Computed example of a mutant assay.
Amino acid sequence: MSHHHHVVVLGAGYTGMFAAVRLAHRTRRTGVKITLVNPSGRFVERLRMHQIAAGQELAVHRIPDLLAGTGVTFVQGAATALDPEARTVTVDGTTSLGYDTLVYALGSSTDTATVPGADVHAYTLDSPEIAGRFAARLPEIERTGGTVTVCGGGLTGIEAATEIAESHPGLRVTLLTTDEPGAMMGAKARGHLHRALDRLGVTVRAGVRVAKVLPRSVELADGRVIPSDACLWTAGVTVPPLAADAGIATDGRGLILVDATLRSVSHPTIHAIGDAAAVRLAWGRIHGTCQSGLPTAQYTADTIARLVRGKDVKPFRFGYFHQPVSLGRRDAVIQFTKADDTPRRSYLSGRAAVAYKEMVSGSPLMTYRFSKRMNVTTIVSKGGRATRRPVA
């Protein structure tokens, strides 16, 4: 079965890249062929996009360089159609790739379609190019004492707001959020986060909903208008419609419904990982983060390696471990969690948290490099007793 077996991986984000590199190592003596498909030749460090938005220069990592020595074939292009019955993927509308096994790792992007004007007047952190265009506007806005609004008070919005405020102290930064920033954290970690926002001069407007994004302002649902010389949108995510359009079983958000081994319930030759998969464990549904995405990639690479050798596989197990958030370059807070992502009593803050967060942000690239030669694990917690039995 393994000889001439072709595995196509769609998406070279954190999960797709790890799945391809680890699978190449695990199947190096089986004759399995692996092709990785991605629209850009640059590997995007999504964990650092807020730094680019604040105007910082980051190292550029090319996908072919990260794949060097693995034997993985890289095809630069966008997957535009998928035929799960014929087992083919169309790239850029012209090239057809046949597969025996497909790893679907097309991650999420920022949802700018829900609120009018967000798609036209707001920037996102979806790519270095868009974040760079946002950053290019900040010096001019700072010179005039203007205002930048960050819409969305999740961890991404918090990191962006604090990074911008620290890098551009002459700016007025406003964070608009429906919930209290850090609501998922324990009281002490949340208190440190709020003190950091205050110290950096970030104005927090919690409990509000954005109704419209305008060229120079943001209109709230209650009719108030917030001045905004530049708006950064981090509220909500969406996934590509490729899977749903192909007739693959998906949930209401477009995520692929998977079984306990992360295979499509409608098309078992398709494995879905990261933000693309609707993964439910005994304690609840996994939400899209790098923390959960890399373990799904590791598990799937190992699962495919076992399947091509005719071996049985065990169900996927995972539990959350932490909620790391940077607060500029000189501060951070790390909330340690239970498997279901609820907070424990322990947390880190200050310099120790900065070092911890930097290790977390840099770990995927190190993992890829080491995975060319050895099996590197990214699973810190398997979720304890709750995940020993798969969800029916």
Rank of each mutant, 00 (worst) to 15 (best):
Y14W: 08
Y123N: 03
H322M: 12
D100T: 08
V391W: 11
F318Q: 11
R317I: 04
Y123T: 00
L23H: 11
V380A: 05
T80N: 06
H50T: 06
Q335V: 00
A246R: 13
V44H: 12
T90H: 13
P181T: 00
L66Y: 11
G93Q: 15
I304T: 05
T35E: 03
T177D: 06
A272Y: 02
D83I: 05
K188Q: 13
T15F: 03
E142R: 11
V213C: 09
A12F: 05
L67H: 10
E180T: 14
G319P: 00
P64L: 15
G223A: 02
K314E: 12
A355C: 03
S371A: 15
V148S: 09
V313L: 09
P295S: 11
D198I: 06
P227V: 08
V72S: 13
T95V: 11
A19F: 10
A122E: 07
I256F: 00
R143W: 05
H267Y: 02
T35D: 06
G153D: 02
R263A: 08
P240H: 12
K372S: 07
V279K: 03
A244I: 01
R224I: 02
Q335Y: 12
L200V: 01
H267K: 12
T250P: 04
D312Q: 14
R46L: 06
W283T: 04
K314G: 00
C231Q: 09
G274T: 06
H271L: 01
L66G: 08
T94Q: 15
D119I: 01
V325T: 13
R285D: 04
E142H: 05
L294Q: 09
G107K: 03
L348P: 03
R373P: 01
A246N: 08
D126I: 12
T35Y: 08
V148C: 11
G207V: 03
I34D: 12
R216F: 04
K338P: 00
A59M: 11
Q56I: 08
E45K: 15
L67T: 09
T378C: 12
H25D: 14
A68M: 14
R369Q: 14
H267G: 00
A221C: 11
P215I: 05
M359G: 04
G247K: 09
Y320Q: 06
L125K: 13
V237S: 05
T261L: 01
D198R: 13
D331K: 12
C151Q: 08
E358R: 15
A20L: 12
Q56S: 13
T35C: 07
C151I: 14
R29K: 14
P268L: 10
G154Q: 10
V208D: 10
A81T: 07
A12D: 05
V120S: 09
T27C: 05
A24N: 12
G328V: 03
M359E: 07
L106Q: 02
S371G: 14
P324E: 03
A53Q: 07
P268Q: 07
R306V: 06
V218S: 08
T174E: 04
R253I: 00
V173G: 04
T296H: 07
I273A: 01
Q76R: 14
V91A: 06
P241Q: 08
G254D: 01
